[in-house]
Simulated scan of single mutants.
Amino acid sequence: MPLISVITPSYRPVPEQLLEAYESVRAQELPRGWEVEWVIQEDGDTGAALDILPADPVVRFATGRRGGVALTRNMALARARGDLVKNLDHDDVLTPGVLARDIEVLASDPLVQWTTSPVLDLLPDGSTVAFDSDPAPGRIEPGHVFEHWRTHGYRLPVHPTSICIRRPLAVALGGWMGVPGSDDTGLLVPASVVSYGYFHAEAGLLYRKWPGQETAASGHYAPMEWSLRMRLIEERAETVRKLWPDVVGVTWGGRGGGV
């Protein structure tokens, strides 16, 4: 039976936020025949998430050594069994129907290797704020995201944390990139140079804005570190494009002949 894996790194989760993330996964209605697993990987070994979440066979939890968010995502990727991999941070919320939309695109269009969605900022008072620079919905040509990113001050036209990606492509690229705070950009940008993507019309994620989030810390925007990681992501994408010049348009099949 085809499976989509939602993978979530966890470190010192806020109970109410983790429960909202859980409820957003469990509320998803999937296309007929599909199943979902929620693969939670703790950045550490406290088992804190298990003390918060109800017993549920959909939830697959594991602990590990402290190593940061990129390593933790990749350990979750290693444990994930689905041919499609959906990212979800432990303080964010999936909107209704987003997994079905991801599956429908990736199951029907073999050229598309990843999808993203509009993201709404979720403010502490419960209100949401939309972005005003989303691209038109539909297929995204190879190279478009990369060229926009590097010609617009390293600002992406789509939100990388909303990505759903075929597992073989994610693995071939080394998973989430080992850079502080931009590991999701480090996966999306090289994926975008060697494959078609897709942008949904409907919002797919509520991105929680709160003082405890990693991107709210001042160090996330330290000029030297930010410049170094942007430079490395750009070099990675350029190198991938040079090494894989004939990959665009090739279908990355699933491990078990799935989507």
Rank of each mutant, 00 (worst) to 15 (best):
R101Y: 01
R229T: 01
I163Y: 05
H152P: 00
I165H: 08
P157V: 09
S192W: 10
L187R: 09
T215H: 15
G126M: 03
P2L: 05
V25S: 05
V85I: 15
V129P: 01
V248W: 05
G47M: 14
R255C: 06
G186W: 02
D89L: 03
P13M: 04
R101E: 04
T251S: 10
E235I: 02
E147D: 15
V158L: 03
A48C: 09
A217G: 08
G33T: 01
M224Y: 15
E147G: 02
H220Y: 14
L187E: 08
V193F: 04
P9E: 14
H144W: 15
G256Q: 11
T185M: 13
S162R: 01
H200L: 04
D51K: 11
Y154R: 15
L232I: 06
M75Y: 14
R167Q: 09
S218W: 09
S192M: 06
I140R: 01
P160C: 07
L94N: 02
G67E: 13
R241G: 06
A55Y: 09
Y198H: 09
D121G: 04
F199H: 15
V189A: 06
A100D: 11
D134L: 14
D121H: 13
Q28Y: 12
A100Q: 08
N74R: 06
S108Y: 00
H152N: 15
D102F: 05
D92L: 07
R81W: 12
G82D: 02
Q17Y: 14
L3F: 08
G153D: 06
L228D: 10
P168M: 02
Y198Q: 01
M177W: 12
A130P: 03
L3H: 08
G212T: 05
A222Q: 12
R236A: 11
E214H: 12
